[in-house]
């Protein structure tokens, strides 16, 4: 089936320029196409007319790199659960619908151009402590320390975060607690990360605050919009770790 749509897209030339919504009609879009393929079609039409195509971030187009980042009809990654924008398909939309497309809105994620934002802040948080402080080589055999399967599985659940920033975009406080807690949890649950657990949580939380992310007020919006279903339990685990670190 093919459908016609009106796209209401945020256009902004660069970080300092004022932005505005511009309407674009698109016609004859197959419902089998992905959302980003629909954007490609629009851009091809714009280029053919000699206009500037809409800038948006994307790369792997299979839901794992975390690069795509559109706020579609009021939801990060659009109207479906547990997916990234690149996995969203046009069958989720109706013929004649108007689709509003915005960039992530959060102070620590400034707009670069149109729908593209700068998420360097996430890298900075990881650089503050999101690792085990070991160098290459000289490590014990991989099976030297048995790890409970349950813990390994929970660590994997947390580690599956793709760093897209949907949690921040969904949160009215622009809080990065889900992102930070996923990394803190992964290492808290594994013996390899235990040694420097206290320093890690303190440094990462301090960096998060410094960069201007808000606090968590338990609305669960982040969990609802996370494309990888990262659980809010991780935030509870991080809070516990943080308290332990502060009193120790």
């Amino acid at each position: 089936m093919n459908i016609n749509l009106t796209l209401k897209i945020w256009r902004q030339a660069n970080q300092d320029a004022p932005g505005k919504f511009v309407d674009y009609p698109v016609e004859n879009i197959s419902t089998e196409a992905s959302f980003l393929e629909m954007m490609d079609i629009l851009n091809e039409e714009l280029v053919a007319k000699g206009e500037e195509p809409v800038a948006f971030d994307h790369d792997c187009r299979e839901g794992i790199c975390g690069m795509c980042s559109l706020f579609i009809n009021g939801r990060p990654h659009g109207p479906d659960d547990s997916i990234t924008t690149c996995q969203l398909h046009m069958r989720k939309f109706k013929d004649g619908e108007t689709i509003v497309i915005e960039p992530w809105r959060a102070k620590p994620f400034p707009v670069i151009k149109d729908l593209m934002v700068d998420r360097t802040a996430f890298d900075e948080i990881i650089q503050a402590g999101g690792y085990v402080n070991i160098n290459t080589g000289g490590v014990p055999d991989a099976n030297a320390i048995p790890i409970r399967k349950e813990n390994a599985d929970l660590a994997m659940d947390a580690a599956s975060c793709i760093g897209c920033g949907a949690c921040v975009a969904a949160c009215k406080n622009a809080s990065a607690m889900l992102f930070v807690s996923a990394k803190v949890s992964q290492f808290t649950l594994l013996p390899q990360g235990k040694v420097e657990a206290h320093e890690r949580v303190e440094n990462m939380v301090a960096k998060m605050d410094e960069l201007g992310f808000g606090n968590c007020t338990n609305t669960y919006a982040c969990e609802a919009e996370c494309p990888k279903d990262i659980s809010i339990t991780n935030i509870a685990r991080m809070n516990r770790e943080f308290l332990c670190a502060k009193v120790s």
């Binding site: 690792y131 085990v132 070991i134 290459t136 080589g137 490590v139 014990p140 055999d141 991989a142 099976n143 048995p146 790890i147 409970r148 399967k149 390994a152 599985d153 660590a155 994997m156 580690a159 992964q186 290492f187 594994l190 390899q192 990360g193």
Partner: peptide
């Protein structure tokens, strides 16, 4: 060596119930 290195970094590989990889 790669597997040893990755486990030491905290890569959560799949494990058996006995705790081994």
């Amino acid at each position: 060596n790669i597997i040893d290195q990755c486990v030491a970094q905290g890569v959560p590989f799949a494990r058996e119930y006995g705790g081994l990889l």
